[in-house]
Structures are given as C-alpha cells and as structure tokens.
Design a protein around this nucleic acid. Sequence first.
DNA 1: CTAGTAAGTAATTTAATACTTACAAGCGCC
DNA 2: GGCGCTTGTAAGTATTAAATTACTTACTAG
Lengths: 201, 201
Amino acid sequence: MSINPRQTTESRQAEIIATMVRLSAERSPAEITTTDIAKAMGVTQGALFRHFATKEAIRLAVVEWIDEHLMFELLAAKERSTDALAALKAMFMAHVGFAKAHPGAPRLIFGELQQPNASPVKQRVQQIMQRYRQTLSQTLAAAIEAKLIRADADCPSAAALFLGAIQGLVIQSMLSGNTEQMEQQAVGVLELYLAALGVKS
Amino acid sequence: MSINPRQTTESRQAEIIATMVRLSAERSPAEITTTDIAKAMGVTQGALFRHFATKEAIRLAVVEWIDEHLMFELLAAKERSTDALAALKAMFMAHVGFAKAHPGAPRLIFGELQQPNASPVKQRVQQIMQRYRQTLSQTLAAAIEAKLIRADADCPSAAALFLGAIQGLVIQSMLSGNTEQMEQQAVGVLELYLAALGVKS
DNA sequence: CTAGTAAGTAATTTAATACTTACAAGCGCC
DNA sequence: GGCGCTTGTAAGTATTAAATTACTTACTAG
C-alpha cells in the first residue's frame, strides 16, 4: 500500500511516541503492546524494533517527549506573563491545558511512578518532577520578592501544593473521563490555591 | 509443613488481600502475579482460585479493603475532633498516616485509575472518591457554618484541593520511596491548605 | 466409621507478549 | 545500473500469565 511508504527512523520514532501517547488516552499504558502500536501505525510489529531496541526505550522516549513539550508550554506561559504571580496562574492553566490536550500523558507518567526505583524511566520522571518543583519555588520566591504573595509562605510546600492541585484535577478527570470538567474546576482550585498564598480574588 | 495448615476461605481471602497490599508497596501492582501472591503465602498458585474466582475479583476485594479501612481511620479522626476545622486537620493527617502505614494502597488505587471506564473495579474507585469528596464538602460546609473558615470558600473546590494535596504528597513519596518525608511535608502543605480557607496559623 | 465437602497440590492448557531472524525491496550514491 | 544500507515483512521463539484439571488430604456430621 502506498499509504505507508518507507520512512526514516527519526520520523518513525516520532510516530511511535505519538501513537503511544494517543493510545494511552483510552487504555492503560502498561497494557499497550507493541502489536497495538504497530497496528495503529499500519505497520508490522517487528518493524518497531527497527527504531527502538526495546519497549523500555520507547517508554523512556515517551517520557522525554512529555517533559520537552510540557516544559515548552510552561515556559511559554511564563514568558507571556508580566509578573511572577501572573506566571504562576498561567503555568497552572497551561499544565491543565496540556493534560487536556494529551490525556495519555498523565497516565503514562502515573504508570511509570509504579515502577521500582532502579528503573531508568522512573528516575527520569523523578528528575523531571524535581526540576519542575525547583522552577516553581523560584517563581514563588520571585513573587514574594515582588510582594505579590504572602512573605511568610513556605515555597517548597507551596510548590508541592501547586503540583498536588493539578495532579488531583488530573486524577479526577481520569476517573470521570471528562477533561472539559477538569479545566472548569481548575479555575476554582487555582483561585483557592492563590488564596493560600494570600492573594485576594 | 505445619506452618501452613488448611484454613477457611474467609481467612485465606483476608490473607490474599493483605499479601497483595504488602507486595504492592514495593512493586507495581499490575505486575504482581498470582504466582507471586501464592509464593508469598507459602501456597501453590492454583490454591488462590479456591478463594477467588478470578484475579479481577482479588483486585476488587483489595479496593474494598482499602475503602473500608481508610474510611474507618477518617471517621475515627473526625469523631475525636471537637469541631469541623479540627476534623479537617485530623482527617488530612489520618489519610497521610494511612498512606504511610500501607504504602501499597495508593499504588493499587493509582493502578485502577488507569483501567477503562467500564471496569467494575474502576467504577468502585470512582464511587469511593465521590463519597469521600461529599464527606469533605459536608465537613467544609459545617466549618463555614461555625465561622471557622472563610464564608466565601467554594466547598467543591476546597474538597478537590484537599484530595489533590494528599495525592501530590503520595506521588512524591512514590517517587522518592520515602514515606517519612511525606508525613513531615504534610504538615507544611496542610498549613498552606488551611490558609486557603482563611485559617490563620 | 464412613460419606461428603472444602482446601490443597502438581501439572497442564491456552493465549499473549517482547523480541529475533531470514528474507525482500526501496533509496541514494558512485 | 549495480551496490549497500536501511526499512520493511512474515514467520518464528522463548517466556510468562491466568485459569483449569485430576487427584489428594483433612475435617465434620450422621
């Protein structure tokens, strides 16, 4: 079939990653087989192993894709904000928007959480989250500096609550399957979060 | 061996559930096989099917065990509190304490989140979380009534943030493998959460 | 003491899964 | 236009899982 010509490894890798993320939106990532991915791509199962050595390599590449694209969105949100407080709001909504645009992404991350500590993929996730929390802490500190939020707010706790608020919303949407509702509820939760930082609505 | 005499189905079911929770503390629940459980119990794999018809039945029983025991702890925490605000604090710490005492429990719940919506086990989790949020909303409303928290706080959002805060802490502890740290951080996060409700520290 | 039932074992079945291999065919390059 | 590398296929392998089966052993009631 001419629908499916030969392609470069680079483009196939991207396609495999995209397919994995897409399929993860509906099914448990752990249960997605190489056959599933291949079928969704219109290619035979063995072909995948031309582009990734093992399935674990696919999982790692997917996690890296998520990191790259989420961080891009967060940075963009931050840069289009005029101050640190606006940046926090924009990052919050950008993260929720990312989860809505790619519902498979959080499922993949949650799946990797389950893995034993030694797993390289999990270590990558660990690193990603740590960096994220650091960025948040910095932005929070900047907001304190600019007197936009309470001076006595504990930055690490505030960063943890920021992430938790989003994760809670994502978990709820995973249960209901309704990402629309998640985005709506995000507004209310964000407002409450900001109140914790001493921001009046 | 006399260590392992014959037992009733009831006690074996409890043992299977306990073993599943215990093993989930270290490994991904999805990867725990019936052979793993049987080995940990000192029994043959086939024996499990004398007590549960399928593996899914085991998973359902485990989720129900978690529900029952977590709700027991939460209710106890609530009842030993003198007012609605103290109840919220006590429930928060009780939930975190439960996650510390049974690290496998959140992993099992997160694992079920991944399943398709039609799954009976996931539906059970959905129901559990919904009831939990309702309980929280009621307690929050009572706290408003008693003028212990801001009158204009949005109860559904506050319930969502409460759960998210805990889930965020749990996720972090799943990454670090450190439940001790989770409990310490919980104090700071709880304080921040209460600030969102207008409670001065 | 004997018959029925519940709980256990050991071995087997069936169905997937990740990964491999032998071979074919397109593409760029000299 | 042939050469070699890459991407693809089709078929195969080894392994693993849940569930089943045939048989055994312990307990209990009449």
